[in-house]
Design a protein around this nucleic acid. Structure first.
Lengths: 239, 239
DNA sequence: AGACATTTAAATGTCTGACAAATGAAAAAT
DNA sequence: ATTTTTCATTTGTCAGACATTTAAATGTCT
């Protein structure tokens, strides 16, 4: 049972450990590829493959030219969002996570933000939510656009908590579920119901009524699960 | 202002899109490196760098030999945990997220799991929590070990919710904060207090008393924030 | 025919050497 | 002093070679 990972994987791990441990601080320049290939006693191609692995994780950035090279990259929340969303979406699709489970996770996490958002949401957050509600009420809106607007509404709610760590953690849950939501056909009646709940949520947030926000989110969660169930049932009867 | 990403990055994106869209299903074999280099009209090295990028994201795995090649990898929750934890830890350390913010996020998310865990926790989860509580009460335990046990306790609580998506989302929040917690010196008195709360939480979970679990988690959150504050204050006076 | 050993083909892993392109700094020209 | 040119450094890309691994195909013996 040999477990000998590729040289490029070993080298990537070595450098990654140095970054994670703080040994290589942000914006520090790594040795050039030629120097690294000497240090690790491998060819330049192998070093390059290792560096590409790190670049794929946004751990380094590279720049050409005389003063160029590979630099330790400051991982931004924006970068992390992107990876988080891709990973979550793949997890859900590849592991056949059912709608109920994904929905439960999403609303559980979102309800964690509700009380904080009721306290700290700014006028800007409220404005975004009202704007999305207006869009959602427009007739002739495609299901995809309705879903996208739904995501934007909930992101504003989460961002209202004013905690970037929470926003980051939730980005995956809220956005990754969009493909699953897209399988739902939103009838005019269900849209009206959802818009009503959204409006009530925005009102409660504006009134800083945390308890009301929580109760409304619970209602929305239950209604969404119910919608998902009806779609699953419809599919089952036709199949 | 030219924005021309590397060829290897373009090719990686092309293949990644095919995977995310489901065009390339799990366990599908990609064309060999030679074939890919023909298809994309680049050298084999460039293709290899693209493949290493995808491998770094656990999107593909490679195998040598006659029937080998690159295969679309099923992204497991375990793989995703690892990436999530690394990313979260780096986000916190590189962006100087303060203890209060990280702590708030962590407990907000954890409280989202509390009610679910009260309903669904198994005997196994309870046993794990009791075992960790016992460890935490041992005198002479290092602060690092106490922290590690604390993380294990909370993971069991979260896993008790029986929702893998929730467990995945929270892994980052709970584990990434460990380095920050490690800066705290746990006095005998504070350990006693925490062990007491943990015991009460385990009792409430066993009794399936969701409200009690939530209240206790709120207490624990407040106490932890207070501990962090005292450390920050101590540092401020000495500096 | 079946079991075992050998060969072979295909694929990734690694190395070498070369050239292209970008880029900032030093040198030269104005 | 300013602008232009040159130049050295570094990453990006390519081509070709060889090493290593692996399973299937082939051969050999019982």
């Amino acid at each position: 049972m040999k477990n000998a990972p590729d040289l490029s994987a070993q080298i990537a791990k070595s450098i990654r450990d140095a970054i994670v441990s703080g040994d290589l601080p942000v914006d520090e320049r790594l040795p050039s590829e030629a120097e690294l290939s000497e240090q690790f006693d491998v060819s330049r191609s192998t070093v390059r493959e290792a560096l590409k692995r790190l670049a794929a994780q946004s751990l380094i950035r590279t720049q050409r030219g005389a003063t160029g090279g590979a630099f330790v990259n400051r991982l931004t929340f924006k970068d992390a969002y992107g990876q988080q969303i891709t990973t979550s979406a793949l997890l859900l699709s590849m592991n056949a996570v059912d709608f109920d489970t994904a929905c439960e996770a999403r609303f559980a996490l979102e309800r964690a933000c509700g009380p904080l958002s009721a306290t700290r949401r700014t006028a800007d957050h409220l404005a975004t939510m009202r704007a999305e509600i207006t869009r959602q009420a427009q007739p002739g809106l495609s299901d995809e656009s309705f879903c996208a607007s739904d995501v934007a509404f909930h992101r504003a709610l989460v961002d209202g908590a004013g905690n970037p760590v929470l926003s980051y953690q939730l980005a995956g849950a809220v956005e990754a579920i969009e493909p699953l939501m897209n399988m739902i056909t939103f009838t005019a009646r269900s849209r009206t119901h959802i818009v009503g709940l959204h409006t009530a949520i925005a009102d409660a947030l504006e009134a800083q009524n945390a308890g009301e926000v929580d109760a409304l989110l619970a209602d929305l969660a239950a209604y969404t699960v119910q919608l998902g169930r009806s779609v699953a049932d419809a599919k089952k009867t036709t199949t």
